[in-house]
């Protein structure tokens, strides 16, 4: 497979997202401009100008009409994807670390950073997806996270029933999606090792967390039970689950950006690692970036994935047939047995 390199950003990528059909890629980086790209040929569709700080997060609603971005200029903004028009801007006292639409696109979640005198907040807005509709100023839900350490990642579960958060100390917590009540908390990653990413399975009944403790863990949404553990040899920044019928998880990471100059690209382990989702076994790697991978995203149709790196590139990979044909021996045996 020949990767497509998207070089529209001038600084390190922080997040990349696919649209629901997998035809558009949205990317944000520490330069202030989110970009939209066609996944098929890497053509840039456009950019959304307005932010005045580094961007940490991006998400697109299921109909690909609204784009949410948040960053270090303490704003969470909503854009119209087609026209690039800024629809709404919410201001906070600290920067936005993570934003995510719910499954139906009716809710938007934002996580603000914990800083001196300010606690991490999780805010949820009601979103009206009809074009031209005005968006609310006040959140319908605000969770002030005071008993738990800083929130790094968050997302909506299936049917927006729960909000799941990942924390700086490696714990994962479950909150009620309606009331904001803390329901459950587990310490799944090593203490003090920040949870760096949280991505959902297609039906959002389980999710994958990546952590600086060099592992990624598959959690059950209801119980927060750790179902699978994928062990890597480098701190992880991101982990994605490939949709059916393939059973892989893709982990991205690499040494911390500050140590990069002291090591060669080969030692830096800047590769996307593929693990089998069920057998927890590594099946391959994809090289290319010359900096750590900050985010890995898989197209919802499973036909391609892209990674955003500290090197400022987004690399889009369309999978070749061997990727789809690969099966473990036990899987083949099962097929032969006629199940």
């Amino acid at each position: 497979m020949r990767p497509i390199l998207l070089s529209g950003h001038e600084r390190a990528l922080t997040q990349v997202k696919f649209s629901k059909e997998g035809d558009l890629i949205f990317s944000v980086s520490k330069d202030h401009i989110p970009c939209a790209w066609y996944a098929a040929n890497g053509e840039r569709f456009g950019a959304y100008k307005g932010h005045i700080g580094a961007l940490w997060t991006v998400d697109v609603d299921p109909t690909t009409t609204l784009l949410a971005t948040g960053g270090a200029d303490n704003t969470l903004r909503l854009w119209e994807v087609q026209t690039g028009r800024e629809i709404k801007q919410w201001e906070f006292s600290t920067s936005i670390r993570r934003c995510e639409f719910s499954e139906d696109g009716r809710l938007l979640l934002g996580v603000t950073e914990k800083r001196t005198g300010q606690l991490s907040n999780i805010v949820v807005y009601n979103i009206d997806p009809t074009p031209g509709a005005s968006q609310p100023d006040e959140p319908i839900l605000r969770i002030v996270v005071d008993e738990l350490p800083r929130v790094t990642v968050a997302g909506f579960s299936y049917l927006s029933k729960y909000i799941i958060t990942g924390h700086e100390n490696g714990s994962v917590a479950q909150w009620d999606g309606k009331t904001g009540e803390l329901l459950h908390e587990v310490y799944s990653h090593d203490d003090g090792m920040s949870v760096t990413d949280l991505q959902w399975s297609a039906d959002r009944t389980y999710f994958l967390t990546a952590s600086k403790d060099k592992t990624a863990k598959l959690h059950d949404t209801n119980t927060l039970e750790v179902l699978k553990t994928y062990v890597a040899d480098t701190p992880l920044n991101s982990a994605a689950i490939t949709p059916e019928p393939t059973n892989y998880v893709i982990l991205g990471g690499g040494q911390a950006a500050m140590d990069v100059t002291t090591t060669s690209a080969r030692q830096g382990k800047f590769e996307a690692r593929f693990y089998h989702k069920i057998f927890e076994e590594e099946v391959g790697r994809v090289r290319g970036h010359f900096g750590p991978l900050n985010y890995v995203a898989v197209s919802p149709d499973g036909k391609c994935y892209c990674s955003g790196g500290e090197d400022g590139y987004v690399r889009v990979h369309h999978f070749d047939p061997p990727y789809f044909d690969f099966k473990f021996e036990v899987e083949r045996e099962k097929e032969r047995a006629g199940y």
Binding site: P3, I4, L5, L6, N41, R44, E281, G284, Y323
Partner: peptide
Amino acid sequence: PPGPRSETTTLGENIVFRPTMGYKS
């Protein structure tokens, strides 16, 4: 004009990615 522009989009080198059982890092 439609189509990728060379300033923002380039093609990388071909990568052979073939999942293998028992891949050793």
